[in-house]
């Protein structure tokens, strides 16, 4: 895999909902610094749960990381509360309810400026940076976020997440409900930010096509397990990925990933 030390590392993470339902069975993955990693999978594959395990959002859903370790650099962060995780430099753009709808665009950004930044001028500078990164937001600064279009909302959510200058950005289902063109534009922005700020990104996606274009590395999840991983290039060329996630080759009788092959199970049973 990658020689560089990973920024985020999940080791055999298991997540259990309400003490009974296991949603994630021993997932291991690595997000190296300065790269874009994509986590692919169909609905219910456990992608979002994995992301929530990282951000500490699980507690509110009566779920816990019951086994395994989540390392952010040298810190173990499994089952940490969300604001602790945020303070370490991990920002999440959630799938739904990603902006404060009763606040204006400007207020959304104001609320997200970290408390460590003192002084009106310093705060304004941070906010102006976001308007530079997402020029479309600038003319809408006085509008309520609830009235924004899906694309603008996504930009605002990403801007609010970036305003705290995170080291790792987690984006859940960015493409959901957005026109492919906008998704493309947003992904380009991400690549530009990755280059400019050295940002590390973990994308969670259902639609593999665009995500694999920009990603460096990819993991594919099925039923709470990582079934396949590799460089984005390798995944794009992989026959099964083409068939099941890129929509190429599969006929009307498209099968699920599971029906085809018994993929490499999680490594937990073998140590």
């Amino acid at each position: 895999m990658n020689a560089a030390a990973p920024l985020l590392r999940l080791e055999q993470v298991e997540v259990v909902y309400q003490k009974v339902i296991t949603a994630v069975h021993g997932v291991s993955l690595e997000v190296p610094a300065g790269q874009i990693v994509v986590l692919l999978g169909a609905n219910g594959a456990g992608k979002t749960t994995t992301l929530r395990a990282v951000t500490g959002f699980l507690g509110s859903d009566d779920a816990r990381v019951t086994d395994g370790k989540i390392w952010f650099e040298a810190h173990a962060i499994e089952n940490c509360p969300p604001h602790t995780v945020a303070a370490r430099g991990i920002a999440l753009v959630p799938e739904r309810r990603k902006v404060f709808e009763t606040l204006t665009v400007l207020e959304n950004l104001q609320a997200a400026v970290p408390s460590g930044i003192r002084g009106r001028a310093a705060r304004r500078e941070r906010i102006d940076q976001v308007f530079d990164q997402f020029p479309r937001l600038a003319p809408a600064r006085g509008r309520l976020a609830g009235y924004l279009s899906g694309g603008e909302r996504q930009m605002l959510a990403m801007g609010s997440a970036l305003i705290g200058a995170p080291r790792l950005l987690l984006v859940d289902e960015m493409s959901l409900g957005l026109a492919p063109r906008i998704v493309e534009e947003l992904l380009e922005r991400l690549v530009a930010l990755k280059k400019a700020l050295g940002l590390t990104v973990l994308l969670v996606e259902q639609s593999a096509h665009l995500a694999l274009e920009v990603a460096d590395y990819g993991y594919i999840m099925e039923s709470g397990r990582v079934v396949l991983d590799g460089t984005a290039e390798r995944l794009r060329g992989h026959g099964d990925v083409q068939e099941f996630y890129l929509g190429m080759g599969g006929g009307p009788d498209r099968r699920s990933y599971r029906d085809v092959k018994q993929y490499r199970r999680s490594r937990r049973w073998f140590g």
Partner: peptide, 24 residues
């Protein structure tokens, strides 16, 4: 004010607010 805006944010969506680093 910064705290006022944060309070409104928490009022609307505490989970998102805490993820944005606002101390609930």
């Amino acid at each position: 004010t910064q705290w006022g805006v944060r309070m409104r944010a928490v009022g609307e969506n505490p989970l998102l607010a805490s993820q944005r680093g606002i101390a609930l």
